[in-house]
Design a protein around this nucleic acid. Structure first.
Lengths: 344, 344
DNA sequence: TCACGGCATTGAATCGTTACATCGCTCAGC
DNA sequence: GCTGAGCGATGTAACGATTCAATGCCGTGA
């Protein structure tokens, strides 16, 4: 910075003002400094800035899985909102790995980010608690906030499960099967609860629960195969899958075995992943407002770092919505949505 | 750090050594310091560290589109390799936006990252050049390095186009159509060149080129519709699409119009996006070794930041491979690969 | 001519580390 | 008995910014 000051014929303090409070400088000075900055290709040292100020102006986002378009939507939402509060945004992918999640939390803590938005793995959030205890706000997405300690943005998973099951029931299906797992995942358990509520409201409708060991396409194939080899009398006529990937694998096997989807068995997915709309039988799904969740999380965080006086920690609960496609209604019109753009 | 030093009864220099050269400390001292660090929940200030050292130990990754699974594969590859060289990794998504790309490059420059891995937009890479001129190495992925200035990892796009076209020709197709665009995208142009080479090698095979305005599913639908309404005599019997999304939209329209894929028209995609395998007619595609590209890029960068004496800038060229699915061969066996896991 | 007020500018202190020269000791080797 | 190396720990000087009280400069009005 001294070099710039020398070249512009001012002191380094003035150069600092040039970057932080340009309105304090006279037009002439401002131009001299700008010229010097350009000449020297000067890039302010953020480490020094952060050290002097005590805190940086980036916010960290830790995502559990950037391979899942739901979380990418969240990231995009966060970014669009963060841009408004002039915060830069750094992403980290914990890749469904608790260790990595903690590592990144620690990294962001060390780099003194302004705040963190975390889409965590299921489990105790003590990594987040530690960061917060250092005075660094953490906002959860897809995980509830903790009373009086942090904010969160979640979707009503129970409602999503309810929507899916009710949809099948309204279509006249009477023997439903819920597939998903492990049931220890809070999202899966909540969705199942919603399914149960819908069943309870509909006398005469039966429910079978089949826990899968994961939510992958592969697990879906296993599920579909198992269903396909059952005697028809024991087959459900509606399947609620706890994830799109599961539904896709399941449908593939059913169709491959000559079972018609949706006529014989209707199947729903969950998450509205981008590929769900493009699959062999487009999957009826529960769409989560990922982008909106990201925006809200960023706003919540902005409130916290801004030290807004009236801020109270809270959890915002958003409602998911049902997206009907051919896996439950044969005549469903394909939605006119794009697959993610390939950028090449 | 002073607090820790006081509590442990040592000087702050010793605390510094505790973190950076623990082998210099005696067992007893090490334990005292460790205890003090734990008691005080001390988190080293990375800004100060970076300031004092002159450079951080993170590497920045700027990706053109994290919605595209190809780039996510790259990121994963980078991460797995970066872990080995003890570098932390920060992600940024430029979202196909030149301005954002430059902003993130600048941000990483300011935070004094150790180096940058950039999957850029098409165009002049002066943002990268600027960063590099500040002594910060930049390694390109999916973009060639610049002689004597930077490294790069690319796939042989021309070869990919060649593979796709030759595959169709070997299947006996004689009137091919190449779809993709804009042709100003280097990847699209290169792929077309490869297609041309395959055509040249096969006398009697005709090629039509149809430039699309983008590589989206929507553009694919437009393409498919246009093909579907042509008189059969003017329809190609093989279509090489420059992207999977394009192929998926195209196939959807063709099938919807009663044209059989692959019997009447065989279609290939490009990129092996995760959803391509799950689509209505699984798409034959050209697979790019994204993970491997990421690993190599990280290694190249490690060489540069490590100041390896023998390091010379170079561009590593990887070969793509053909993945045959039902959009060209009806009997193709579905690959037993997983869709991306949903992590919930 | 001079005191005055208002602003732009300056300089010193500070932030939390790292790097390195240096200290006081001990011990082996001659 | 002397020398020199090795050891673990220490203290000081950067590192590159921000902040803020103090200073200088300006035109203005008396």
């Amino acid at each position: 910075m001294m070099d710039v000051a020398l070249r512009a014929g001012v002191s380094h303090g003035t150069v600092s003002n040039f970057f932080n409070r340009p309105q304090l400088l006279s037009e002439a000075t401002r131009e001299k400094v700008a010229q010097a900055v350009a000449d020297l290709a000067f890039v302010p040292n953020d480490a020094a800035r952060t050290l002097a100020k005590g805190t940086g102006n980036t916010i960290g986002v830790v995502l559990v899985d950037i391979g899942n378009s739901f979380f990418v939507d969240i990231a995009r939402g966060v970014e669009s909102a963060a841009a408004e509060s002039a915060h830069k945004l750094l992403l980290a992918n914990s890749d469904v790995n608790a260790q990595k999640q903690d590592d990144y939390l620690e990294l962001f803590d060390e780099t003194r980010v302004r705040g963190i938005i975390l889409a965590p793995l299921d489990g105790e959030q003590d990594g987040a608690a530690r960061v917060r205890s250092h005075g660094r706000p953490v906002v959860f997405v897809n995980w509830p906030g903790e009373d009086d300690a942090s904010c969160g943005v979640i979707v009503d998973e129970e409602h999503g499960g309810y929507l899916a099951a009710r949809h099948l029931i309204e279509l006249g299906r009477t023997t439903l099967l819920f597939a998903g797992g492990p049931l220890t995942l809070h999202a899966v358990a909540d969705r199942l609860n919603g399914v149960r509520r819908a069943i309870d409201e509909a006398p005469g409708v039966a429910l079978e629960v089949l826990e899968t060991h994961s939510l992958t396409t592969r697990a879906g194939r296993v599920l579909g195969h198992e269903l396909a080899i059952r005697p028809p009398a024991r087959q459900p006529d509606g399947v609620v899958c706890a994830a799109d990937s599961l539904a896709i694998g399941c449908i593939e096997q059913l169709v491959g075995a000559g079972i018609r989807v949706p006529e014989d068995i209707a199947v729903t997915g969950y998450d509205n992943n981008h590929y769900g709309a493009e699959s062999a039988v487009p999957v009826t799904t529960i769409a989560q407002p990922g982008h909106e969740m990201g925006v809200i999380a960023a706003e919540l965080l902005a409130e916290e770092v801004g030290g807004l006086p009236g801020h109270t920690h809270r959890t915002v609960i958003l409602k998911p919505s049902l997206l009907v496609r051919k896996s439950t209604v044969a005549s469903a019109v394909p939605a006119i949505t794009d697959a993610p753009e390939t950028a090449r």
